[in-house]
Design a protein around this nucleic acid. Structure first.
Lengths: 211, 211
DNA sequence: CCTCCATATGACACTGTTGTCACTTTTAGT
DNA sequence: ACTAAAAGTGACAACAGTGTCATATGGAGG
């Protein structure tokens, strides 16, 4: 975490550094990011950088922490609704809110994406546990809905939870396959999300087929 | 693509280079891979490397090409069955075959994974079009099944195709969320795949809910 | 045995990066 | 105004990698 020297900085400079770091870490993954680029863009001398942070990773941790805070603030208190809403209504809300956040913060998404796709220790340290918690959270929702008779008992909760999270991650990020990133077309994204949720709810086969 | 010097090489040396490249490119993404590591492991001098390949990227292209060939040989002629089988039977076959290939060739999977997660020109050059073709292929299958009355008309073909491919990619690679890579437990992987396909077919809601 | 061309080789020039450190400037307290 | 601590600064040493090039080697044909 940053040294107090950084905390004490005037907002302007602090912000330039934050912005430059965001640009650099969303441009490329951690290993190939360069302190040189960051200080050039922020317009601070090299020496100062090391006055503020232990090293590159120290800054990265700080940025990662900030992203987490901002995301949490954005997602807000949806958590509390878990008992009141059905799985899919709740999911839709989570999904759309997440997608909106992603759309408004493309750089944060890129950073997360880079992290998700690294298999090194950095990843395990920062993300590993988060995902396990997310799975637990979804499993919990699913179980409640099974008890209420809304979800088939024969569906494996962990499998469903995993699929839901994977799906959420993919559209939140962009369409893996079509390369479509929805630009700023929020409506289009919502339509896509609803189509996806519908498939999860009802399946795609016609009624005649199975029992 | 490699120079003829490389093609002319005795099988032993050629193979050592191939193996070393596979190790290096599956260890880390292209940008951070090192010619130094490859030549050290293959036991060839630096100069020789540049006798065989234009540069690092030239070798990468070669490896990528090889992976494609081997994968194609493995997947084989499933293509021809498109008219005879229902969407999900066909998908299950594609899915399981792909997963088996992935399980047997973890290094190839890692390389693909690294490529998938890069957003640079390398990716677009090598993968962009592949994915579009895959989507088209799935869409085509889906349309056939709609005509036969097996799939609800109200399902968006492109959305479904995209979701199917994303799902396939994820389990083929590993469980994004649980971190479970199934090791060599082929049976367990098949079970997981079947559970996923079942959710796509039938949806997860109980019958009472919707029309 | 000689010659010539393809191939092999590793030292090296070049580039780019990180983190350090000796020195300068600013700030704040007296 | 004086001084001590804090913050700022950029030249630089250390390192790590790439691709090149002058030179060495070997084998096929004469």
């Amino acid at each position: 975490m940053p040294k107090k020297t950084f905390e004490n900085l005037e907002t302007g400079k602090k912000n330039r550094i934050y912005e430059a770091a965001l640009n650099e870490f969303s441009r490329t993954r951690f290993e190939s990011s360069k302190v040189s680029n960051i200080i050039k863009e922020a317009g601070i001398p090299r020496g100062s950088f090391y006055q503020y942070f232990e090293d590159k990773f120290d800054l990265y941790l700080y940025i990662f922490d900030e992203i987490g805070k901002r995301k949490m603030a954005y997602i807000g208190d949806i958590q509390s609704k878990i008992q009141e809403m059905s799985l899919f209504d709740l999911w839709e809300e989570l999904y759309i809110t997440g997608a909106k956040f992603a759309m408004e913060n493309p750089r944060l998404v890129d950073i997360t994406k880079f992290l998700l796709s690294s298999k090194d220790q950095v990843y395990n340290k920062l993300m590993g546990n988060n995902l396990k918690l997310a799975v637990d959270y979804y499993v919990q929702m699913i179980e409640v809905n099974k008890k209420n008779g809304l979800i088939r008992e024969s569906v494996d909760s962990v499998t469903l939870a995993t699929m839901m999270i994977e799906t959420t991650t993919n559209v939140a990020v962009d369409n893996l396959t079509t390369g479509d990133d929805f630009g700023t077309d929020f409506e289009k994204m919502i339509q896509e999300i609803k189509k996806r949720i519908d498939i999860f709810r009802k399946g795609v086969e016609t009624g005649e087929e199975h029992v």
